[in-house]
C-alpha cells in the first residue's frame, strides 16, 4: 500500500471537511511532469541489491523479488538511483 491517485479531485461545499482531517494518502496529481530525464533499469546488469529502492527520496522504486520496478507517475528524475547503483545498471535518458 501507498498513497495513490483518486478519481475525485474537486470537492463541493458540502464535501469539504468541517475540520482539517481527511483520508490519509489521498493523491490527486502526479509528479511525472517534473522530470527532464528518466531512469531505466538494465535488468541484465542489475543484481537486485535494493540500493536504489532504499535511497529513492520519493519511494517510487519497489522491489519485485530481485527486480526494481519504477512508478513513473511519481518519479521526479533526480537520478540518485542511477548514481547510487553499484553496477551502473540504471541509465538516465
Amino acid at each position: 500500500m501507498k498513497p495513490y491517485i483518486r478519481e475525485k479531485s474537486t470537492f463541493t461545499f458540502d464535501e469539504i471537511p468541517e475540520d482539517t482531517c481527511f483520508e490519509a494518502g489521498y493523491l490527486v496529481t502526479v509528479n511525472a511532469g517534473w522530470r527532464s530525464v528518466t531512469p531505466y533499469v538494465d535488468t541484465e546488469k542489475c543484481i537486485g541489491c535494493s540500493q536504489c529502492y532504499l535511497y529513492c527520496p520519493d519511494g517510487v522504486i519497489s522491489m519485485e523479488g530481485k527486480t526494481p520496478v519504477l512508478d513513473y507517475d511519481f518519479c521526479k528524475g533526480c537520478g540518485i538511483c542511477s548514481k547510487i547503483c553499484p553496477r551502473h545498471a540504471i541509465e538516465m535518458r
Binding site: F13, I16, D19, T20, C21, F22, A24
Partner: peptide
C-alpha cells in the same frame, strides 16, 4: 469524534488549504 487519528482509517490532519478552498473552511 472523527476529527482524530485512526489506525483503521488513517488520516492526515492540520493540513494546508489553498485559495480555492480556504474560505470554505473559514465559512464553516
Amino acid at each position: 469524534t472523527n476529527n482524530r487519528f485512526d489506525f483503521e482509517h488513517p488520516v492526515n490532519m492540520g493540513f494546508s488549504a489553498g485559495p480555492e478552498t480556504n474560505i470554505i473552511f473559514k465559512y464553516k
